[in-house]
Amino acid sequence: MTKIADNVNPHVYEKGSERKTTSAELDEELTDEFDEREIFDLIRNINDPEHPLTLEELRVIEEKNIVVNNKENTVVVNFTPTIPHCSMATLIGLSIRVQLLRALPSRFKVTVVVSEGTHVSEHAVNKQLADKERVAAALENNNLVQIINQCVANV
């Protein structure tokens, strides 16, 4: 089964630096709130299903496209497929969702959507990703889970 990737030669971007540990983070007393960077760090190293590259290197995910609201307990992640007709968009979205599902406290309501105007079937993808039951059903498909697990294995 050799399927040629949708985007054979994607543009690769520089990897950002690791988050530096601040003195506030080392202080036992202070509370660190969740911020955009933390969410970004949770998903930046997810592998692209097609290439041995991370979502960060492909700029599918950027820190500026993440919104966290600690008071209302919401997280919104916008992701940008590398090309507008990328057939992997749903899978990438699903991987992000699954990873956040596993890595965030349950108090957060997570929304994963395609950045506006970056994909031909944007609405369909968004609808699929927002549908809890379809996500749950997808996670019962062993083949799908296998691919997702491989994508998030190195996070």
């Binding site: 062993n142 083949n143 296998q146 997702i148 491989q150 294995a153």
Partner: peptide
């Protein structure tokens, strides 16, 4: 905690290397 928990999720799951 994220590292530990995501790793435990993979135990025995398809796709675990």
């Amino acid at each position: 905690a994220v590292r530990a928990r995501t790793r435990w999720f993979l135990i025995g799951a398809p796709g675990e290397m």
